[in-house]
Design a protein around this nucleic acid. Structure first.
Lengths: 256, 256
DNA sequence: GGCCACAATAATGTTTACAAAATATGCATC
DNA sequence: GATGCATATTTTGTAAACATTATTGTGGCC
């Protein structure tokens, strides 16, 4: 009876059609704009490993509440994209050197298997998708670093998709994110992430159904990516706060 | 002079007693007893797919608050162990038939690779660990279903550990959990999960460094597991509540 | 007698406020 | 002038109250 004003608050999530019973996406949290935003920012290297992810800042940036942010951070932490330290907050995950190597090894395993399965399952629509992507990648502006990063990631995702295993696709996606973090942590300055000529070669070999060749090319491509990082003392081991402090200190010195 | 005393607040997380063998200690990096408890309950099949995970019930069961429970559920949902439906709550995840097949395919890939790597890296301590586990598995009480399930899962985890890749180990752990859910969803009544004789064979082949044989045996073992499940109309598709109701109804009829 | 609508209840989701911890800042002291 | 301690501020963590939604039970209507 104490019904206050029936003020309708704006819904946090777009209202899905409730008429269909099982329209719920299995990965219910992955359509969350906060999670997607952070993942995109990381994959595009706008968020660097060790960067602080303050709850209030994120809430203001995404126009939502702290509770929502906290849920998103828990989700991302469980996927090892974010590291949560009690009473200190959340930071972009910074893999250790050993973990970086393990990530590349895992990608070698999953993606060579994906190439093989993709060739086995390749049909007309798959060929069309692959060709379309190769077109886009060939014609894209290589000076646009963000578009470049997105496109190169999309190639690997497309191959994993063509393999036809949703579980392995999700795992590959996770590994690609973590690869971004590994590269961002240990990359040599000024080096590109992917050799730009590798993807057309791999794509052509897949289209030609040259399984051994495509697997070899993919493995070589990942080896190339791994070769671009170096352990460089103290890069993955230092405390996150130390890294942040170092960065802030460097900027302060440069500024004055 | 209001000196802030270093008063230690009562810890929200009761210390988990490790009396039982922790089959599922995924690096679900949280030593959170709620997460560990739910994971253990699922791997031991005390929690069935589709079971409702009410926040108040869980909070009471674990002696903690709803906030804590909600965090744990978000974590588990991101691992696809729990399914969260907006405004309706959390349920133990129920994979579809296609997803179940993908899970087994992923395990084939990861675990055959693990066998290969384990043989390559096998050293004295690894051999000792493997032998010790095979001893335990040989002498365990096969009537104790929970211990049985724990031990058989531990064998696969041990092999993945011996492969020496922490990232792939974590993924394998996750896949094993999801295998439990897949089997629980689609299993034929009264069938055991693992053929009890497969593990000694695989272990012996690893100890003998027979790589081709061990890989073949592992693949065959996983094939066997997969063959034990059947699509059975409407088992993975029916609503969770329907499944619960069916189970309760069956027990009520049996009881009187 | 079956079906639909409405109200009661329980559960989830969200807001608000507050407490605790960590970091930053300022002051006193050496 | 540098260092260490104390305070202030910011940030994270927690709790309780409240609103919303789904479920269930009841009653009226066809």
């Amino acid at each position: 009876m104490k019904r206050t004003r029936p003020v309708k608050r704006r819904p946090k999530r777009p209202d899905p059609k409730r008429s269909e019973p099982e329209v719920v996406d299995p990965r219910s949290n992955d359509d969350d704009p906060v999670i997607q935003g952070i993942l995109t920012a990381i994959s595009q290297k706008r968020l660097k490993p060790g960067a602080k992810l303050g709850e209030d800042k994120l809430a203001a940036a995404f126009g939502t509440t702290r509770i929502h942010i906290r849920q998103a951070l828990v989700h991302l932490a469980s996927r090892k994209v974010v590291m949560q330290i009690p009473n200190r907050g959340a930071f972009v995950y910074r893999p250790s050197w050993e973990e970086a190597q393990d990530i590349f090894a895992a990608r070698r395993l999953l993606e060579t298997a994906a190439v093989s399965a993709a060739i086995d399952r390749l049909d007309k629509s798959g060929k069309a998708e692959l060709k379309a992507h190769m077109e886009r990648e060939a014609r894209h502006d290589r000076n646009d670093r963000w578009a470049s990063l997105s496109l190169t990631a999309e190639f690997h995702i497309l191959v994993a998709k063509l393999a036809g295993n949703q579980v392995l696709l999700d795992m590959s996606r996770e590994l690609m994110l973590r690869t971004s973090l590994a590269i961002a942590t240990f990359e040599q300055p000024g080096e590109p992430d992917c050799s730009p000529d590798a993807h057309p070669d791999i794509g052509a070999l897949i289209l030609a159904r040259d399984k051994a060749g495509a697997i070899h090319a993919m493995r070589h491509h990942i080896d190339d990516m791994e070769r671009r990082i170096r352990p460089e003392e103290g890069k993955g081991e230092i405390d996150e706060l130390t890294a942040i402090f170092k960065d802030i200190g460097a900027r302060a010195r440069a500024g004055g």
